[in-house]
């Protein structure tokens, strides 16, 4: 399924930060958003995932076709790995969690409480949820944070498999995933007027709020 974004303007904290953003990601392709910290990569992804309204512009398809993965892993510490995943499988109406566990090398960890996992293992558990969702468009915000190099490469193959099945992906990443034919889009030219002004006067500008 194609992801088509037209004339999108997004705001953070009531201030427009990006305007006139337009791109399309056709089925089988991935697009990586680039830009400096605070430019609004996460805000764009959250808007496309339907977590916040756009100021203007349109996104197709709707949020019910989009699988979202954010900074937080949505892992419950007191449940085991398998229980965590089984819950999301029930929510998404997916059947068996074993293939997803196997795909992210979580089988041997399956019966451990999630609180005993390392940051990278928790991230893998968070990414396993994507495989359960069966949604064609993946919107991923920094999916490879705290993953080691081998797991990053493995995740890239899972992503390539999803693309090969006719999916599409929009992501931000500071590491090179090594995806063949992944396009890149620099967000800097789309900076909204007010945001450009803020960037020009860094004094008193707290990027933690972006």
């Amino acid at each position: 399924m194609d992801l088509i974004v037209t004339e999108l303007s997004v705001a953070r904290g009531g201030i427009a930060i990006l305007a006139g953003l337009g791109f399309s990601v056709t089925a089988g392709n991935a697009l990586v958003l680039r830009g400096p910290n605070g430019i609004g990569k996460t805000t764009v992804l959250r808007t496309i995932a339907g977590l916040q309204p756009a100021l203007t512009g349109r996104v197709a398809p709707g949020p019910d076709q989009i699988a979202w993965s954010g900074h937080a892993d949505a892992v419950k510490a007191t449940l085991t790995v398998r229980e965590n995943l089984a819950f999301w499988a029930a929510i998404y109406g997916a059947g068996d969690v074993e293939p997803a566990l196997a795909d992210l090398h979580l089988i041997e960890l399956a019966d451990r409480p999630a609180q005993t996992l390392s940051a990278g293992q928790k991230r893998r558990l968070g990414l396993a949820r994507l495989l359960l969702s069966d949604r064609p468009v993946w919107v991923l915000d920094e999916p490879t944070v705290s993953l080691d190099a081998a797991t990053v490469a493995h995740f890239a193959t899972l992503l390539a498999r999803h693309l090969g099945q006719g999916g599409a992906a929009l992501l931000t990443s500071h590491v090179d995933l090594g995806l063949h034919g992944a396009q890149e889009l620099d967000l800097s030219p789309y900076r909204a007027r007010g945001a450009a002004h803020m960037q020009a006067s860094p004094a008193g500008f707290d990027e933690a709020f972006l």
Partner: peptide, 14 residues
């Protein structure tokens, strides 16, 4: 909300 589950539930089919 803290661990991101609420965001995931908000985008889930439920």
């Amino acid at each position: 909300h803290e661990d991101g589950t609420l965001e995931q539930l908000a985008t889930a089919p439920l």
